[in-house]
Design a protein around this nucleic acid. Structure first.
Length: 526
RNA sequence: GCCGCCAUCGUCUAGUGGUUAGGACAUAUGAUUCUCAAUCAUAUAACCUGGGUUCGAUUCCCAGUGGCGGUACCA
C-alpha cells in the first residue's frame, strides 16, 4: 500500500446556533453539501457557539429543520453523531484551552492582562493619530515566568497569538490561487477569551485539524484573514486544509453583502411564499458558479440531485454575484411546470397545510412579513374548499399550471372557481365600447345561445365560439368585447385562462349562474 | 487610511492569442389567441480605461479606475 490513497473529502458547515438561515448562508450550506455529495464525501455539521452573547435556545434545531426542508443533510454532527465529536464547540472547551496553553509554552502565544478599558484607550489614541488600529502588544514581552505566576494567582487573562511582525505568509486558495499577506497587517489576535472560550479562528483551526476536514469552504470575507489560520497550523506543525473562499452574494444594487433590508429572506420564507426547495437551490448555485459546458443545459434548470452529479469547485467564479429575484422566480416557474398535475396538487396542498398554516421552530427566530398574514387568511378561506373536492381542485389548478410563478398566487388565481359571488367594481367591466346597460343586454342575448351550445356537456369548441361570435355579430359588437363581458361575469376579472377551459372545470350550470349574477349587477348599476 | 481580491450585455454567466464573442433572466417587437400567461420567431444590449508583449489581444503583463471584502475578547 505504498500508493497514496486519495483522502475522502470531509467538509463542514459551521453555523452559530442563532436559529436563522438566510439566503446567503443557505448558499453556503449548499456549497458544502454539493462539495461533499459530488465526491462521495462527508458533510459535517459543527456548531460554533463560542460567543456566549449569541447563544439562543433551540437555535440548532431551527437550523437543522430549515435545512432538512431544503433537502440538505449531514453525515456527522451533534444529532447524527460520528467519530470526531463532540460537534458542539462549547463542549470542547478543554481541548481549546489545552491547545492554547500549549501554544504559550511553545512560545507562539502569550498571556495578556490588558483591561477592556486600556484596549479602548489605545484604540482611541490610534484613531486620533490616524494610525493603524491594532493591539500594541503591551503584554507580549512580559517575562513568561512572571505572566505564568499571574495566571496561576487568578489574574484575568486572554491568550494572544505571537504573530510575526515582519515578512509575509502565503497560502493557496482553491479558487483565488496564491494569496500573500504581509505579517504587519495582522494583529496579535486573541485566541482564548477571558471567559475561557476560544475565538473563531482558534477553534476553527483546532477543530478542522482534529476532525480531519479536507476543505474549508467559507465566504470570501475570510480570505485575507486566513494567514492567521496558517500561522496556527504552522505553530502546531500541522498540515493545513485546502482553502476554498467562495465569492459573495451581493444586494441587487451591488452594494454590500446581501442584507435583509434589500431582499434577503429567511430561507423558510421562500418555502412559505411557495418557492420549491430545488428551485431556490438551483438559483443559488448559479450565482457564482456554472457547470462545465458539456454538463450545461440551455434552460439552466437543475434539481438538487442533478447538481450533486455535476457540481465541482473548480467551476466557481472569483467575482461576487448580485441577488436577482426575477431570475429566481423564473427558475421556480420552470420547476413548477415540470411537475405533473397530481404531484403539483399534492405539493400545493402540503404547502398550504404545512408551510402557510403550520408552525416551525424557525418561526421563533425569523423575521415575518405582512404577506404571511394575508396569505394565511386566504389559505384558511380556500383550503377546506380545495380539499372538499380534490378532483375539482386539480382541474382548476391545471388551468393555471403554466401561469404560476410561486404557490402564493394560487388562492387568488383560483378564486373564481370557488367564490359564490364576486366583489366587482366598475373597473372589472371596463371596455371602451359599451356602457353597463349594453353589457347587460349583450349578456342576456348570449345566454340562450350559450345554453344551447354548452348545456349538452360536449364542450365543443366550435359551437361555443359560434355562439359568442354569432351573438356579437348580431349586436354589431367586436367579438372581443363580448368575450370580455362573459369573462368579467364568470371570473370576476379581466384576465383568466381560456373561458371554455374554465367552464369545463366549473360546469355550465355554475358559469350560467355567474352570468345571471353579472347581469343583475350591471342592471342595478344603471 | 492601510491591506487583499475582483472586473464579458442592465443582471447571472460561457468562451477565446485570430470567433458573426454563445446562453439564461429582464426589456422590446411580431406570430398565435376571446383576455392574460405560455409557446415560437425576432430585436436591442457586453469584453472598464491606458500602456506594453505580439503579425494580431477581450484573452498574457503592467498601471489606473471602479467594485467588493478585511482591518474585534463577532463569526
Amino acid at each position: 500500500m505504498s500508493d497514496k490513497i486519495k483522502k475522502q473529502v470531509r467538509v463542514r458547515a459551521a453555523p452559530s446556533p442563532t436559529g436563522r438561515v438566510h439566503t446567503g448562508n443557505l448558499r453556503t450550506f449548499l456549497n458544502d453539501y454539493l462539495t461533499a455529495k459530488s465526491s462521495s464525501g462527508v458533510n459535517i455539521l459543527r456548531v460554533e457557539d463560542t460567543d456566549q452573547n449569541r447563544k439562543v435556545e433551540g437555535g440548532l434545531e431551527a437550523i437543522l429543520e430549515t435545512l432538512k426542508l431544503f433537502g440538505i443533510t449531514f453525515d456527522e454532527g451533534p444529532k447524527q453523531g460520528g467519530d470526531y465529536g463532540p460537534y458542539i464547540q462549547s463542549e470542547r472547551l478543554e481541548i481549546y484551552q489545552e491547545h492554547a496553553h500549549k501554544l504559550v509554552e511553545m512560545g507562539h502565544a502569550y498571556y495578556c492582562f490588558c483591561s477592556k478599558e486600556r484596549l479602548d484607550e489605545i484604540r482611541e489614541k490610534q484613531r486620533a493619530n490616524k494610525m493603524r488600529i491594532m493591539y500594541d502588544r503591551h503584554c507580549r514581552d512580559i517575562d513568561p515566568k512572571e505572566s505564568k505566576k499571574r495566571v496561576d494567582s487568578g489574574d484575568p487573562y486572554v491568550v494572544r497569538m505571537k504573530f510575526p511582525t515582519e515578512g509575509y505568509l502565503e497560502f493557496t486558495d482553491e479558487i483565488y490561487g496564491k494569496i500573500r499577506v504581509n505579517n504587519e497587517e495582522i494583529d496579535d489576535m486573541v485566541l482564548l477569551k477571558s471567559d475561557g472560550y476560544p475565538t473563531y479562528h482558534f477553534s476553527v483551526v483546532i477543530d478542522d485539524h482534529l476532525m480531519e476536514i479536507t476543505h474549508v469552504l467559507r465566504g470570501r470575507e475570510y480570505l485575507t484573514q486566513t494567514t492567521r489560520d496558517i500561522f496556527l497550523y504552522n505553530a502546531f506543525g500541522w498540515e493545513p486544509t485546502k482553502w476554498v473562499h467562495v465569492p459573495l452574494l451581493l444586494n441587487p444594487d451591488g452594494k454590500g453583502k446581501l442584507s435583509k433590508r434589500k431582499g434577503a429572506m429567511p430561507a423558510l420564507a421562500y418555502l412559505r411564499k411557495g418557492f420549491l426547495p430545488d428551485a431556490v437551490l438551483n438559483y443559488l448555485v448559479l450565482a457564482g458558479w456554472a457547470p462545465k459546458p458539456e454538463d450545461a443545459k440551455k434552460d439552466e434548470i437543475y434539481t438538487l440531485d442533478e447538481l450533486c452529479k455535476i457540481f465541482s469547485l473548480d467551476r466557481m467564479k472569483k467575482s461576487n454575484a448580485r441577488y436577482d429575484q426575477k431570475k429566481l422566480e423564473h427558475i421556480n416557474s420552470m420547476h413548477i411546470r415540470r411537475l405533473d398535475i397530481d404531484t403539483l396538487a399534492e405539493k400545493v396542498l402540503n404547502w398550504a397545510d404545512n408551510y402557510v398554516l403550520g408552525d416551525f421552530i424557525a418561526d421563533k427566530f425569523d423575521d415575518h412579513f405582512d404577506w404571511e398574514i394575508e396569505l394565511k387568511e386566504k389559505v384558511l378561506k380556500y383550503l377546506p374548499k380545495w380539499k372538499a373536492d380534490l378532483d375539482y381542485f386539480k382541474k382548476a389548478l391545471a388551468t393555471e399550471h403554466e401561469r404560476l410563478t410561486v404557490f402564493s398566487e394560487i388562492p387568488d388565481a383560483l378564486n373564481f372557481f370557488y367564490d359564490e359571488e364576486f366583489d366587482w367594481d366598475d373597473d372589472d367591466w371596463r371596455t371602451q365600447n359599451h356602457d353597463f346597460n349594453e353589457l347587460a343586454d349583450g349578456l342576456e342575448k348570449v345566454l340562450p345561445r350559450l345554453d344551447e351550445a354548452l348545456a349538452d356537456g360536449s364542450w365543443d369548441h366550435e359551437k361555443w365560439e359560434k355562439a359568442v361570435r354569432g351573438t356579437a355579430d348580431e349586436l354589431g359588437w367586436k367579438h372581443g368585447d363580448l368575450f370580455l363581458a362573459i369573462r368579467s361575469a364568470t371570473t370576476g376579472r379581466l384576465q383568466s385562462p381560456p373561458l371554455l377551459d374554465c367552464f369545463k372545470v366549473m360546469g355550465w350550470e355554475r358559469a350560467r349562474g355567474l352570468i345571471v349574477n353579472g347581469i343583475d349587477w350591471l342592471k342595478n348599476k344603471k
